[in-house]
Design a protein around this nucleic acid. Sequence first.
DNA 1: CTGAAAGCGCTAACAC
DNA 2: GTGTTAGCGCTTTCAG
Lengths: 328, 328
Amino acid sequence: MKDVAAEAGVSAMTVSRVVNGGAAVAPRTAARVVAAVRKLGYQRDDVARQLRRTHELSQIIGLLVDDVADPFMAAVASAAEDVARQRGSVMLIGSSRADLSREREVVAAFTARRVDGLILVPAAGSHRFLRPAQAQGTKIVCVDRAAPGLNVDAVVVDNFGAVREAVRRLAARGHRRIGYVGDTPRIRTFGERRRGYLAALAAAGLPADPALIGDGLRSGPQAAAAVTGMLALPDPPTALLAGNEILAFGALAVLPAGHAFVAFDDFALADRLTPPVTVIAQDPVALATRAAHLLFARIHGDVAPPRTVVMPTRLIERGSGELPGPFA
Amino acid sequence: MKDVAAEAGVSAMTVSRVVNGGAAVAPRTAARVVAAVRKLGYQRDDVARQLRRTHELSQIIGLLVDDVADPFMAAVASAAEDVARQRGSVMLIGSSRADLSREREVVAAFTARRVDGLILVPAAGSHRFLRPAQAQGTKIVCVDRAAPGLNVDAVVVDNFGAVREAVRRLAARGHRRIGYVGDTPRIRTFGERRRGYLAALAAAGLPADPALIGDGLRSGPQAAAAVTGMLALPDPPTALLAGNEILAFGALAVLPAGHAFVAFDDFALADRLTPPVTVIAQDPVALATRAAHLLFARIHGDVAPPRTVVMPTRLIERGSGELPGPFA
DNA sequence: CTGAAAGCGCTAACAC
DNA sequence: GTGTTAGCGCTTTCAG
């Protein structure tokens, strides 16, 4: 910047004014500065700028997900980045791999860079550790699930209700042995889905058989193994619900074609399988967009009490979930 | 930091030494500082730190992809962030939507934050604009395709050879009308795939019929429409190659089950379709991991001439690509 | 082992 | 319209 000022024969302050626009600078002076900037390939140093403007925004937000490679999270990331860009911010991204200590590390690295806000898909466990960051002004919004011990905005879906309804329909179609494969119930989202499953069984007067419940599954192969185990039982399930997309892929790898099946999350090609797969669809783009807008509202001074926004899900009946059970 | 120093009854310098470790500080003093840090919830301000250490690294890298929601790019992002974390860096992410001017904007926002390096999936068009950033010390590595006008490391696959071989096999199986749906050939990756297709046709003595080539397709529905058009021709194709995953999904939505089909990029459930889908698989995680390691090597002083790493692809024959043509 | 002074690149606040 | 001064929060350098 000093070099540019020298080159243009002005002070650093004038360069600053030209580079940032807005302030009144004589057109001829401005032109000289612009020429010098171009000649020297100067670019404003936002790090230094931010230091001086400590109470202004950094125009950086952070996004923390389980794993960006997960299609649901990828859609969330894409939509969040889109909003950030529209709002003139850049976005840091991190994957917690559902590990709270890793999440902590990444969040610390983010806040040290003075992010204006954080969009969080929280791992299991207490999020008290975020209090200092909050106190220091960092805004936080949760997506997909609320964070235990943290009173902030959250954008979620009614996991409990959606699964309960799906399982109710399976039972109504004559299934009495309904299996469930899910990730750890310690993660709120999956805990709710599991509760929805159990509630529907209870409402239908069906017993909850532990042998038909796969918990804590974290990958396709794990889900496949769990399903294979269930199918080998003396009285195997006649219908199955997969708690998320990854587990659905695993289950589909081993499930016979005629087996009733419902998956949480819609996915590509679901309608091209035989039979086409019935899913509980949520809209990750809508979720993330909503969350990002909430975050920016907070960043720009919205101080209303934290709210939880519940977005709709949609049961898309394509065939696999409508196969009749033995008691139809 | 001043507050912490006051609380602990030491100077700011001592706080700095304790917070950053390494330097020799009396254990008792250090303990007092640690207590003060905890009490006040102090966290080092990396923005200020970085300003003073202008010639040190920012420990921020930037990743620029077409769109994170694309499964291939999502896998790249996940793998790159993994390496970044291992190397103690955080990662900014941006989507260009294959638009050069948008890419430019995002890259500028990244370099203004003094990123140490950039992993780039370059959009079509000249990347000369990156020269100043390079001169200023920002390291750059391209993934999936090289950037026109920029002499930097790149990690790619042999798109040309992989498609040529796949189409050669289709021709060898008796197909004479082979269709192709691809994104714009102005993007290097897709240009090479298209050339591979044309080269295989030529080698098999087959004419290249423009009516069987869908170019510049950017979404599933666009691919579906293109394929529908081809199928309505008086002499429709008997085999089809889709240039990427997104287009494959679109094509599969309208393609009759008995139609020969090969897709570039492996995808979930490819083996569960009827017939199972033959694909040209690349390994996005390996690509990105390699690229990230290359980037960090550059950041840490590797000054060897830029090299292009070609990673292998694998033709996975699952059935859809082995269906015989009318002249088998 | 600890502290004081200076300055990273920029801009707020105030002169002129 | 433009320049000057000071200081953002930290660390480098040098002194004790």
